[in-house]
Design a protein around this nucleic acid. Structure first.
Lengths: 136, 136
DNA sequence: GAATTAATGCGACAAAGGTACAATAATAAT
DNA sequence: ATTATTATTGTACCTTTGTCGCATTAATTC
């Protein structure tokens, strides 16, 4: 029998922060928005729980730091987050890109079960700002 | 003027380990093959240097642990490792897949500069073993 | 062989995250 | 509404992965 989840204030807060954000968030982002009022362990445990429930997925950046973003089409224990993630090298934000991701056929014998892609470059916002500066 | 590299015994050993391996290696792998004789900091620094020189590239796994593999077409300061990396969920090895990787066109405004893909599943070896067991 | 300076070993340190356990607070049961 | 149950939280501490400063060692150059 599964352990029952309880709908606590902290979980609601964290879920609200996730819903309000257009980009993926790391622990520090949550801590800042929670004004440091919640313990580190609690925040990590809640995010971990959301992942187990299929509500949130993890994204590992180039340095291994973990970011969290809401899932759109996942079910508990059956994540389907094989979409692209984009890291802007200027503003550092990571966001989900929901274009269908086509992984090329793998060499004979490989069986793919999951894909995790982090593309980096300039996001539209930053690209515009850079272009703006150049024109001046 | 760049700081000159010196061709030390340790560097040769680490390069030999990399050349002999068909999969990407993490610090522990190097440490084991060096029988724990080299200091942690030294090993990390050498690997870091190889990366700067375009000889080696880093791969971050799902948990942020770093793996290292030889580069094939990179120049110093100009890495071109946008190939797929494959993590076998059974034997845990990570290997480079040199099939051309086609990133789908990004939404308007995004400028891609680099891509990092970690696909996971079963490698040919493990898939065969699993299939073998099922038939018995 | 001597001088120069890159590389190494050592110890301490840092960031990201997890764990054990007692205290607290959602739910369920009465 | 009150009590019982047990999920959740806070606290303190630990682990893993990796970095830094600095004195010592060893490749290169002269």
């Amino acid at each position: 029998m599964d352990r029952q989840r309880r709908n606590t204030r902290t979980k609601q807060l964290i879920m609200a922060i996730l819903s309000d954000s257009s980009s993926a968030l790391c622990y520090e982002d949550f801590d800042r928005q929670l004004s440091g009022k919640m313990d580190k362990a609690t925040v990590y445990r809640i995010l971990q729980g959301f992942c187990e429930d299929g509500k949130v997925h993890k994204i590992a950046d180039e340095n291994g730091k973990t970011y969290y973003a809401l899932c759109h089409h996942c079910r508990s224990g059956n994540h389907d987050d094989n979409h692209l993630h984009f890291r802007c090298i200027r503003c550092r934000t990571i966001s989900c890109i929901y274009e269908p991701l086509v992984i090329p056929p793998l060499p004979a014998g490989y069986r793919m079960m999951d894909a995790n892609c982090l593309v980096s470059g300039h996001c539209p916002n930053c690209f515009n700002e850079i272009a703006g500066y150049e024109k001046k």
